[in-house]
Amino acid sequence: MNHTPTELTDALGTQHRPASGEARIVSLVPSLTELVCDMGLAANLVGRTGFCIHPRETLRAVTKVGGTKDVKLDLVRELAPTHLIVNIDENRRETVEELAAFVPHVVVTHPCTPEDNFALYRLFGALFDRRAEAERLAAELAAALTEAHAVAAALPPEDVLYLIWREPWMGVARDTYIAATLAAVGWRTLPAASDARYPQIDWQAPGLQAAARVFASTEPYRFAERHLAEIRALSGGRPASLIDGEMTSWYGSRAAAGLRYLADLRRKLVEAGTVR
């Protein structure tokens, strides 16, 4: 089977070869651990982080190698992986460089928009001989993007504040995957411009006054119903609601489900009349 250089190129521009023999994969990225399993590669997964929780039953038998930032290098060495899957935002460069000293193939990822998942599917499909699975996921994503864009086209754009942390309060910049996913259904995150990808929130900042609503994500901070009254007070009484952080931030095989979730959420909020 022929493979083009482009489909085997990772986020750093490294050209990979299709895996030969039985691949042994360690994934340090929760959403990509899920993708590996959904592409039929669960038997090849020998290591994962403690934050890799989907699919739950499948992962019970897979060795935990620490967290996304604090990886147990000696344990990874013992697992003798042929491939290591990492992400530019989620894993420390220094750690990845140490692992690269003894893992033959390090696959670096960095999806920043839902559309970037198409290249991700092609890369994994070509690398691990899962072309059919990659094509299935691409078709599901294309359909979900069409639905999301239809919702965005039918409704006026809406500025929103998306919270990922409390004390200090933190949001997301528009160059993040989360913001791009929200934008697919017509939600524009605030602040409109930021030097930091995850800026601290000044509730009194003039730029935030345009927010029509506030979303409190269920991860990485575990926002719950008890936090919403505080958020409404700080935001001047704006509508505030919880939002599933896995559906907005997990790329890979969850991307299509995330877009459908957001399209449905936007429709429901309009029907409920919670537009400021």
Rank of each mutant, 00 (worst) to 15 (best):
W169G: 06
A101N: 07
L141V: 12
R254N: 12
A240I: 01
H227K: 13
T68F: 06
E22M: 15
W187L: 13
W165Y: 06
S217Q: 04
T63G: 01
L161E: 05
P114T: 03
L12G: 14
I178W: 03
A139T: 11
A272N: 06
A229K: 13
T146Q: 14
Y198M: 11
A11P: 07
A43W: 11
R92K: 05
D159A: 14
T274M: 05
M39N: 03
E158P: 05
E22F: 13
D70P: 00
R136L: 08
K268H: 04
P191H: 08
Y261Q: 03
R197S: 12
M39A: 09
Y261R: 03
P157C: 10
A216K: 01
I85R: 05
P30R: 12
G237P: 04
R254C: 10
G171T: 15
Y198I: 10
A132Q: 14
V62A: 11
S27H: 06
P30F: 11
H105T: 15
A143S: 14
L32N: 01
T68C: 10
A152V: 10
S249I: 00
K69C: 04
R56H: 11
I25P: 00
V275H: 00
R17F: 05
M39T: 05
V151A: 04
S31N: 11
Y261L: 04
A11D: 10
F51N: 11
A216F: 01
A240E: 01
W187K: 07
A173K: 13
A23Q: 08
T146E: 15
L45C: 13
A80F: 01
L8V: 03
D74W: 07
